[in-house]
Write a protein that binds this DNA or RNA. Structure first.
Length: 427
RNA sequence: GGAGAGAUGGCUGAGUGGUCGAAAGCGCUCCCCUGCUAAGGGAGUAUAGGUUGAUAGCCUAUCCAGGGUUCGAAUCCCUGUCUCUCCGCCA
């Protein structure tokens, strides 16, 4: 959520900057709603003030044993007037609030203009895509060859966009997770957390998935508004919802491994082959919450932490700065890490590192207390995948494949694989 | 699933339908006193919103949440949520 005060005072500027995100802010609508809200609120508060004053007088009169009947007569219609004013205010206030919740975050100045991912700007590239002296397979063929990846049986068990992994490949998947967690905990100073995979609507509103993007979520049946998490960002960032932490506790750095569930509504026909785009996948997520003045540097650091994963796995990748049109709703600036997939001969997103500034914190009322002023201030929140486990698995398979369909184990993963150096060697 | 108890400010913990945003204690901040890491005295110490040039005032809201009764609710009524205890079941 944007600061309502900013919207009031710099509405035109904000509208222009939101334009780079392909968002059309209706200036007239905002102004008229805000004006309505203002008069309705003032009306309610004035009536409340009067009621408080009168009631106080009645109380005092009664204490002195005076006759309060005439005083009661004076306030006879006050209640009705107040109710009327209140119901009017409630309507306007709700409209105003939902408008505020539907406005995306303002892009940072460094966000390039552009409409789609083709306009993203490449910042740097690391590693060189390997030259194969044989025909490189994609992960689907490799997985089939090793009898280790099965989309058909997953479709039987559940439906499309699910997969089962077997034997050494399932083990490699787990090894990747363990490796990433250990890296971020031991070398990057994150605290590992375990969180619910089911969250309520308030949490999703806090991070920005609701109210606008409910169709991307799996909602549970039942009398409660429960959803499967689309990312660990939701439960982890909401650890701080309605909280005020002391300055000494900052920065907060959490790493969290969870499954993620996404309906992928609107992506019919995209990435239908393989496990690039699944309804269920695993991710190791990095989340930071800290002071406003530290968030730019933290964004760079967090992105680097994700990069280290790819560097240690020796996977070729590139870093791109997302253009306005490709930027997420809550993000002010996002770096994507794209890993090289020989099977597609393309770089594909494997991590997305975003700075939300105080956008999520304002929705969540997540704050810290400034020692210098003694006052609470909104936290800045950031997160990034460190990295997506399913896609990392694909990347390792395709980049480390050997002639004949076996797969070498990256050196850093070997300790997690019982020293194994080659998978599918006997198939 | 059954039975019961509870939810008050950073913490502990009072609270009557009326001047309670809320006693007291602790903690914290500032000041005073004190020749020393003791003790004492005083003042202050929530959050959000509105209004405003203003972090000055003023107004409003908030004692788990949402409704209700009332001129007036932390206090009475209803519903829900959460926590705790006991029983049952269970990974």
């Amino acid at each position: 959520m944007l600061d309502p005060k900013l919207l009031r005072t710099e509405l035109n500027d904000v509208a222009v900057r939101l334009g780079t995100k392909n968002f059309d802010l209706d200036i007239r609508q905002f102004e008229s709603l805000d004006a309505k809200r203002k008069s309705a609120q003032v009306a309610v508060e004035e009536l409340q003030a009067e009621r408080n004053k009168r009631s106080k007088v009645i109380g005092q009169a009664k204490a002195k044993g005076q006759d309060v009947e005439p005083l009661l007569a004076e306030v006879a219609d006050l209640g009705d007037r107040l109710d009327a004013a209140k119901s009017q205010f409630d309507v306007v206030s709700e409209q105003f609030q939902s408008l505020l919740l539907s406005i995306p975050n303002i892009p940072d100045e460094r966000v390039p203009a552009g409409k789609s991912e083709t306009d993203n700007i490449e910042i740097r590239q690391r590693g060189t895509p390997r030259e194969f002296n044989f025909t490189a397979l994609d992960h689907v063929d490799l997985g089939e060859h090793g009898n280790a990846m099965d989309f058909e049986v997953a479709a039987k068990i559940t439906g499309s966009r699910f997969v089962t992994l077997h034997g050494e490949l399932a083990q490699l998947h787990r090894a990747l997770t363990q490796f990433m967690l250990d890296l971020h905990v031991n070398e990057h100073g994150y605290q590992e957390v375990y969180v619910p995979y089911i969250v309520n609507a308030e949490s999703l509103q806090g991070t920005g998935q609701l109210p606008k993007f409910g169709e991307d979520l799996f909602k549970l049946e039942g009398d409660k508004d429960y959803y499967l998490i689309p990312t660990a960002e939701v439960p982890v960032t909401n650890l701080l919802r309605d909280a005020i932490v002391s300055e000494e506790q900052l920065p907060l750095k959490f790493v969290c491994h969870t499954p993620c569930f996404r309906s992928e509504a609107g992506s019919y026909g995209r990435d239908t082959r393989g496990m690039i785009r699944q309804h269920q996948f695993e991710k190791v997520e990095l989340v930071q919450l800290l002071r406003a003045q530290d968030s730019h540097a933290a964004h760079e650091a967090l992105t680097h932490h994700a990069e280290v994963v790819l560097q240690k796995l020796d996977l070729p990748y590139r870093l791109v700065n997302l253009c306005g049109g490709d930027l997420g709703f809550a993000s002010a600036m996002t770096y994507d890490l794209e890993v090289w997939l020989p099977g597609q001969a393309a770089y594909r997103e494997i991590s997305s590192c975003s700075n939300f500034l105080d956008f999520q914190a304002r929705r969540m009322q997540a704050r810290w207390r400034n020692n210098a002023t003694g006052k609470p201030e909104l936290l800045h929140s950031l997160n990034g995948s460190g990295v997506a486990v399913g896609r990392a698995l694909i990347a390792v398979m395709e980049n480390y494949q050997q002639q004949g369909g076996s797969i070498a184990v990256p050196a850093v993963l070997q300790p997690y694989m019982g020293g194994k150096t080659l998978l599918f060697s006997d198939s």
